[in-house]
């Protein structure tokens, strides 16, 4: 990375009150304050947001795709965690 490059930030936007912040992309900024303002100008020009989170990219830790099988496959046979697993009569209401 070139010496004078501003660090990269990941941008999360809440599109309206009541919803989660969602990752929308990234951008460069010299500091957190500037990252928020840049995000305002870059990612909310069309009223896409009401709240912004920024995280410097280097602080994001991600799971490794190589672990995907051991991470996620074990959940696939635990169908009893889902409501449809249970066989109940149709007459049963409000459940």
């Amino acid at each position: 990375m070139a010496e004078n490059q501003w660090p990269l930030w990941e941008i999360f936007i809440r599109s309206k009150q009541g919803l989660d912040h969602k990752h929308v992309g990234s951008l460069h900024a010299a500091d957190a304050q500037m990252a928020i303002e840049n995000a305002r100008d870059v990612y909310t020009r069309r009223m896409e947001g009401v709240s912004i989170w920024v995280v410097e990219s280097k602080y994001v830790h991600a799971s490794n795709p190589d672990d995907a099988a051991s991470f996620y496959d074990p959940a696939s046979d635990k169908v009893y965690r889902h409501p449809t697993f249970y066989d109940l009569p149709d007459e049963l209401k409000h459940m």
């Binding site: 990375m1 070139a2 004078n4 490059q5 990269l8 992309g25 990234s26 951008l27 460069h28 870059v42 020009r45």
Partner: peptide, 27 residues
């Protein structure tokens, strides 16, 4: 024209996920 700057920015950012920084791309 401002949107085009934004589009360039989105694409540089997407390219950076492949391990090449914007400064290098601009170079």
């Amino acid at each position: 024209v401002q949107d085009e700057a934004g589009h360039g920015l989105y694409l540089y950012a997407a390219t950076e996920t492949l391990g090449t920084g914007r400064e290098e791309l601009l170079d």
